[in-house]
């Protein structure tokens, strides 16, 4: 909803002091987003993906070139900038998407389960890079994840959401203290219970499964 893609059923929200409903374009300029599903163009090169993004966000030509070089270097993709993205590994694609999200110097960057399906090395590296930019450019990073150890390690503040409702929020230490547990994983279980949330598959899930099959088929 904050990203202007969905309309709220009730309530008011603000992003950087602006209402996403009434100031759509202003709000869109102020955030960057990395979706759960990939949103790169595989037929284009890493550089072109960055370029197109820059044009869409009205980043002036010179600045665009400069930022692209800077960010691709930070995320260790500069040497591969001329290659088509479909030849990249999962971790590289993720890094490129995050680099792209930072390109237009947003005030806030949304990451929707950015480490899903990545190996520990890529995950570790990815967070180091994100932290680097987060500290250098003072960008708020808003992330969702299912890995509690990850949240514990990288997040300053955490909100636990269950069944669409915010259960609690605070720093990792506060949440652990509040529940009297030693790890965030235990705290999470204590807050939300141990029953498994079985939701029926949506159309998107069906598509995702299809995409997976397709990818595997393509590799063989």
């Amino acid at each position: 909803m904050l990203t202007t893609l969905l309309k709220p059923t009730s309530g008011v929200m603000e992003l950087d002091g602006l209402n996403p409903l009434t100031h759509k374009n202003e709000v869109r300029k102020r955030f960057g987003i990395v979706f759960q599903d990939p949103s790169l163009d595989g037929d284009l090169t890493a550089q072109e993906n960055m370029d197109f993004h820059g044009v869409l966000y009205h980043v002036p030509h010179k600045l665009r070139k400069h930022r692209t070089e800077e960010l691709l270097k930070i995320f260790e993709l500069w040497d591969r900038r001329g290659e088509q993205v479909k030849k990249f590994s999962g971790g590289m694609k993720r890094r490129l998407e995050i680099a792209r999200g930072f390109l237009h110097t947003p005030r806030i960057l949304f990451l929707d389960e950015p480490t899903l399906g990545l190996d520990p090395q890529s995950r570790n590296q990815l967070w180091n890079h994100v932290k680097e930019v987060n500290e250098a450019e003072k960008v708020t990073v808003f992330l969702t994840t299912h890995y509690m150890d990850e949240a514990d390690r990288v997040a300053h503040r955490i909100g636990v959401i269950d069944h669409g409702k915010l259960v609690t929020q605070g720093t990792p230490a506060e949440i652990k203290e509040q529940t009297g547990t030693t790890s965030l994983e235990d705290a999470f279980l204590k807050l939300t219970g141990t029953t498994i949330r079985d939701e029926s598959a949506s159309a998107t899930d069906t598509m995702r499964q299809f995409a997976k099959m397709w990818q595997q088929g393509g590799k063989r």
Binding site: K24, R28, I33, D37, D41, L44, H53, L56, H58
Partner: peptide, 10 residues
């Protein structure tokens, strides 16, 4: 694909 990324662009 890339379209999703464009739908949130200004």
């Amino acid at each position: 694909g890339f379209l999703k990324e464009m739908l949130v662009a200004p």
